[in-house]
Structures are given as C-alpha cells and as structure tokens.
C-alpha cells in the first residue's frame, strides 16, 4: 500500500464513523444538546445570574467548560463504543485482515471521534447563544485546545475499548473517572477559589488544563499557564498515542 492507498483506507474509516454518528444522531448528537441546555438554564440563567468570576458573568464563565465537557465526553464515548462494537460484532476483523497499517486504523477512529466531538461542541456553542453572547477572543488557541482535547480523549477511549471485554467495561471509565475529573476540572468554578490542598490536587487533573486553555481561547481568561496547558495536552497525546499504537501492533484484545 502506498500513501494514496493509505488515504483511501483512512477516508473509508472516517466516512464509516461519520455515517454511524449521523445514522444514530438521536444517541450521539441529541443527548448532549439537551443536557447542556439544562446546564445553561439551571446553572447559568437561574442559579448563576448573580455570580461573577474573573469579571465574567457566571454563564459566560461556564460556557467554555460546558463545551469542553461535551467535546471530551463525546470524543471518548464515540471511539470507545464504536471500536468496542466492532470488536463485539467481530467486524473489526475486516480491518485486521486487510493490509492497512495500524496507524491508519487508529487515525481513522480518532478522526471519527474528533468529528463527533467538534459537531457536539459546535451544537453546544450554538445553544449558548440563546443564553449569552459568547465571543471567541483567540480563535487559534480555541481551535488548538478543542482539537487537542478531543484527540487526547479519543485516544483514551480507544485504549479503553481495546481492553474492554463487555459493554459494561466501556461505561465504567466515563462514569467513575471521566465525569468526576470533568466536574472537578474547573468547568463550574475557578480553581483559584479552592483552598489548599485541593488547589494543588486539582493541578494533577489533566482536564483542568484543557478547560482553561479553551476558556482562554473564548474569554481570554485562564487559571493556568497557557504553555503548560498545551504542553500537558501534547504530552498526553504523545503518550496515549504510543500506548494505543503498541496495543494495536501487538493485537492486544484483538488477535488471539
């Protein structure tokens, strides 16, 4: 296979993934839209109308975090359920018996997950305009943050799917790891409001860096150093990417 064949193979996986996202839109796109609208209504309009953080109204402050939360959860959920589904239904074998290199398989699935993350992120951003006037202060930082965060959690979801043996295994990580980390990652508050040692403990949460990098992109405000935030995301991408490639190459959970 040459570079052109690789592109065709990559395009095939991405097209299949996007087609899946659109086919089951009521499971992939609608739920985050409803959930985030409720967050906007309850936390933004009702509870948070008298709260200000870093000179921003509370709803303005939580919009970047809620978008990032949607992106992370949907990128992770897309790849973990789709790849595990392919394993469970055995149609992952269609790819394993082909001459397609492992990196094409991984890139294709990650791209599919990123597409879902971005579509959901765009939907939530669009919904936010019904409640506030979100502006994008730094478009490049915004795009870089959302893309990197989606890639990191797509890779994490892929690793989860590789090890998963049943559908419950795919649900455990989002429930017991991803959701707590997201809620404690500065989506609803500034980490500077936390007393010690929780402030320091929070700095170990990678989602904190993603939310703040994205918030910087939209609002121009961040609780953490921007370079450190992007450094954490790039490092996580490299590490998780290497782990995922190694698992695929060795056929862990895929080849007997």
């Amino acid at each position: 296979m040459n570079a052109s064949n690789h592109l065709v193979a990559l395009g095939t996986i991405v097209r299949r993934e996007v087609s899946r996202i659109m086919r089951i839109w009521s499971q992939t796109l609608l739920p985050p839209a409803i959930t985030m609208t409720l967050y906007f209504v309850v936390f933004g309009s009702l509870l948070g109308k008298n709260i200000k953080i870093h000179e921003h109204s509370y709803i303005d402050y939580i919009v970047p975090g809620l978008i990032m939360m949607s992106v992370i959860q949907n990128a992770y959920g897309n790849i973990s359920s789709s790849f595990f589904g392919a394993k469970f239904g055995r149609y992952v074998e269609e790819m394993l018996v082909s001459p397609m290199p492992s990196w094409v398989i991984l890139t294709g699935y990650v791209a599919g997950a990123v597409v879902r993350g971005l579509i959901v992120g765009a939907i939530v951003l669009g919904l936010s305009y019904f409640f506030t006037h979100t502006r994008i202060a730094h478009p490049f930082a915004t795009l870089a943050a959302v893309l990197l965060a989606a890639v990191v959690f797509a890779l994490a979801g892929f690793v989860n799917a590789v090890y998963a043996k049943k559908f419950d295994d795919v649900a455990i990580v989002p429930t017991f790891v991803l959701t707590p980390l997201t809620y404690l990652g500065g989506v609803f508050y500034s980490v500077e409001m936390l007393p010690q040692p929780w402030h320091t403990v929070s700095m170990a949460n990678p989602i904190l860096y993603m939310v703040n990098a994205f918030r910087y992109g939209l609002l121009g405000t961040s609780d953490v150093n921007l370079w450190l935030a992007f450094g954490v995301m790039v490092a996580a991408t490299v590490i998780l990417g290497a782990v995922a490639m190694r698992l695929l190459h060795r056929g862990v959970g895929l080849r007997a």
Binding site: M1, N5, A9, E94, P99
Partner: peptide, 11 residues
Amino acid sequence: VNSAGFYGIAR
C-alpha cells in the same frame, strides 16, 4: 465498498 477501501481501492 468499505472492505475495498480498507485495501486502498479507490471508491
């Protein structure tokens, strides 16, 4: 068609 795509065969 997808299977062919995995082999790099143009759509």
